[in-house]
């Protein structure tokens, strides 16, 4: 039994765009070493807060040598509001890492036939998990193109550059020097084509990315990280389930229910039933 519930000490918690925070926490080295891109962590509310449920956040960086984990989050309610006020030295009870992350092994076989860089697409705070993936791929010496979309001011740009990415940045509000529009407009304008795609962001964006990738290389080569309101984050409450198209041994698709927290949050594009009647 590995102990996934650990205390983490806040090292940095900085507002990097209006309402968006970048938090770095110090944890045991084993915890940081266990984290993979696409996995998430739960932050448990402190006893006095009157909040009861953990908040799930995609991990945007893990450094086993320094023993650090990082998240990027937006203040959307009371839980994230309280977290945004956590200063250096604050102790957080967390569970990490949780969920099933991106499969990067499959890139190896792909790349023997096609040297074009894979494309990483992030929308808003969904850029966080993509940064973790970009850094991981940089270590494996895989060149990467990253497409980042924002509602307003961009963030994490410097970090993506440092991760060696070729960068395309888009914002839905006019920003100096970056593409005006959403990530799909941006990818279309650039005529982007790749053998594999990875994406994290709002469900609407992911569905549009799926359509784009389907027309390019086929959405079996897209991996997306889904988001949902969660209760437990470790697979017991079944609050975050989604309809998934599963392909059996005979290749025939079958619709099943899967838990985003433990079966995901990463699924292949061709598995996701985008309009699953849940919204």
């Amino acid at each position: 039994m590995t102990n996934k519930i650990v205390m983490a000490e806040v090292r940095m918690n900085r507002e990097i765009a209006p309402g968006v925070y970048h938090l770095q926490m110090l944890v045991e080295k084993e915890t940081a070493a266990a984290a993979r891109p696409g996995q998430f962590l739960n932050v448990y509310p402190e006893a006095g807060s009157r909040l009861i449920l953990p908040r799930p956040f995609g991990i945007c960086s893990a450094d086993p040598d320094a023993g650090t984990l990082e998240i990027v989050y937006e203040v959307v309610g009371r839980g994230t509001e309280i977290l945004s006020a956590a200063g250096e030295g604050t102790l957080l009870k967390i569970a990490a890492p949780l969920g099933r992350g991106f499969d990067t092994e499959s890139l190896k076989s792909l790349r023997t036939n096609d040297a074009r860089p894979p494309v990483l697409i992030g929308g808003g705070v969904g850029c966080g998990p993509m940064l973790f993936l970009a850094r991981t791929l940089q270590r494996e010496q895989v060149p990467v193109t990253a497409v980042l979309g924002f509602r307003d001011r961009p963030f994490l740009i410097r970090e993506f550059r440092e991760a060696g990415c070729t960068l395309l940045t888009a914002s839905e509000t006019e920003q100096e020097g970056i593409f005006s529009g959403n990530v799909i407009d941006c990818m279309t304008a650039a005529g982007l084509s790749a053998p594999a795609y990875f994406a994290c962001g709002p469900r609407g964006m992911l569905a549009a990315v799926d359509a784009y990738v389907s027309a390019d290389c086929g959405d079996e080569f897209l991996q997306v990280s889904l988001e949902e309101r969660m209760g437990c984050g470790y697979g017991v409450c079944v609050g975050c389930s989604t309809r998934i198209r599963e392909y059996g041994e005979n290749g025939q698709p079958q619709t099943v229910r899967r838990k985003i927290c433990t079966d995901g949050p990463v699924f292949r594009g061709n598995e996701v039933i985008w309009d699953d009647g849940t919204r």
Binding site: I52, L53, G79, R229, C237, C240, R257
Partner: peptide, 17 residues
């Protein structure tokens, strides 16, 4: 199959599912 999501809501000192 269960119900559509969202299936979880937090409330004061408790939760809904």
């Amino acid at each position: 199959e269960g119900n559509p999501t969202p299936r979880i809501a937090e409330t004061y000192g408790g939760m809904l599912n």
